[in-house]
Amino acid sequence: MNYILIAIGAIIALYAKNTVNQNQYILIGGIMILMIGIYRISKNIPSRHQEDEHIDDKKE
């Protein structure tokens, strides 16, 4: 689902950027959809600091 949001947002943003009469609202909407997809993916990736804590606990 997240990758679909990223793809749709990128397509909409590129479409709005390439038209002769550039519609700013469509461009902003496409960028927002793109950013929502990126945020949802990054939310599931653990931070590097959390991984380091788990490795240090295993060493002791």
Rank of each mutant, 00 (worst) to 15 (best):
G30M: 07
G37D: 04
I26T: 04
Y39K: 11
I33S: 02
R40K: 11
H49W: 02
S42I: 10
L27W: 07
H49S: 10
S47D: 02
Q24V: 11
Y39P: 00
I26M: 06
I38G: 04
K43Y: 07
N21L: 15
E51V: 12
N23Y: 03
R48P: 00
V20Q: 09
H49I: 04
S47N: 05
Y39T: 09
I26R: 08
N23V: 11
E51K: 08
Q50P: 00
G30D: 04
D52I: 09
Q22V: 12
I36A: 10
M35G: 05
I33M: 11
D52Q: 05
I33Y: 00
Q24H: 14
K17P: 09
Q22D: 05
Y39A: 14
P46K: 01
N21H: 15
V20H: 06
I31A: 13
L34F: 15
I45Y: 09
M35C: 09
T19Y: 05
N18R: 11
N44Q: 06
N23E: 06
I41M: 13
L27F: 14
I45V: 07
I26G: 00
S47H: 03
I33T: 12
L27N: 10
K17S: 12
Y39M: 12
I26P: 02
M32P: 06
N21R: 13
D52A: 07
Y39L: 15
M35P: 02
I38Q: 01
G29Q: 03
I36M: 14
P46F: 01
R40Y: 03
K17Y: 14
S47F: 00
Q24G: 03
I45W: 05
N18K: 13
S42T: 06
I28C: 06
I26S: 00
Q24S: 08
N18C: 10
I41T: 08
P46D: 01
G30Q: 04
Y39I: 14
A16P: 06
R40G: 03
T19H: 10
G37A: 05
S42W: 08
R48C: 02
Y39W: 12
